[in-house]
């Protein structure tokens, strides 16, 4: 199967883990289309958006590879190796060529992707994808969502799941024009969510769990044993938005309660 991976940076841990994992499964991507690692305009925009401190942290994740000790997501460590060597940058996976772009929806990017003629695109970060790109692969573009669809669409999915007492889990689905409204390929609850020590820890565990679950999906698609299921509830607006810090704190409290008493407790609205 011809697979292309979209990434936000060559140093993206998630993208590195996905590409390494695909190689390990014997489905090496034929290319990675990554956003430029250093884009001054993006960095400046982040300074304006987040302030200097957070922008510097962002720049650090974009501009340089991480050492094993400085891994942001330690749960990805099992996936971050290739032929026995640790992978901290997509450049370290020699057989997968990387093409850089400023925008994954640009004419140039679309021409590149059409030339690749992929069966499948795996979205591991980057721009909001437009329809012309979504139309390119034979099967479609798949995305790893950190919540169970259709209950929690959109941003801050783990936090909203906690607040709305929706089980924690991941969904791998085809992308379409809506926000997380595409047909579902796989939906799995996270085993032992109560083991998560913090929201960040929970998010990292969900990402690693999702990367692991990509394996059965790719195999299933290749062998034709998996078929996409359209989402049941398309009429209701279930999109969630970036969560405010105060509600995030409540979600953290909920997680803490989950750790001490795994029985579902609803944050009474």
């Amino acid at each position: 199967m011809r697979i292309v991976v979209l990434s936000s940076s060559v140093y993206s841990e998630t993208a590195c883990a996905i590409v390494s994992h695909l190689c390990a499964l014997d489905y090496p991507p034929l290319a990675v289309l990554s956003l430029r690692t250093f884009d001054p305009a993006t960095i400046l925009r982040k300074v304006a958006q987040w302030g200097l401190r957070d922008a510097v942290r962002y720049a650090q994740t974009r501009l340089g590879p991480r050492t094993p000790a400085s891994l942001h997501n330690v749960y990805l460590a099992p996936f971050l190796s290739h032929r026995g060597h640790p992978v901290r940058s997509l450049r370290e996976i020699a057989e997968v060529p990387i093409t850089f772009c400023k925008n994954q929806n640009s004419e140039k990017s679309l021409a590149f992707l059409k030339n690749c003629a992929p069966d499948l695109i795996v979205f591991a970060g980057g721009n909001i994808l437009r329809q012309p790109l979504l139309d390119i692969p034979r099967l479609g573009v798949i995305n790893l969502h950190l919540g169970l669809l259709p209950d929690v669409r959109g941003m801050s999915a783990p936090e909203w799941s906690l607040l709305n007492s929706v089980p924690l889990g991941i969904t791998i689905h085809y992308m379409d024009r809506g926000i997380d409204t595409g047909p579902i390929l796989l939906r799995r609850e996270l085993p032992d969510p109560a083991l998560s020590s913090s929201l960040e820890n929970l998010r990292n565990r969900l990402i690693a769990f999702g990367v692991e679950q990509l394996g059965p999906v790719i195999l299933g698609l290749d062998r034709g044993t998996i078929s996409p299921a359209p989402q049941a509830v398309l009429d209701r607006d279930l999109q969630h938005f970036v969560i405010h810090q105060r509600l995030r704190d409540l979600a953290a409290l909920r997680l803490q309660q989950l750790r001490s008493s795994p029985a579902p407790v609803r944050v009474r609205a």
């Binding site: 938005f241 105060r246 509600l247 609205a269």
Partner: peptide
């Protein structure tokens, strides 16, 4: 809409509070 007799689908929704906070 937290009161049971006025609850409508989707109204008792933390997304309203989230938007107001922002």
């Amino acid at each position: 809409s937290r009161s049971q007799d006025l609850r409508i689908e989707g109204s008792c929704d933390l997304r309203y509070l989230n938007a107001a906070l922002k």
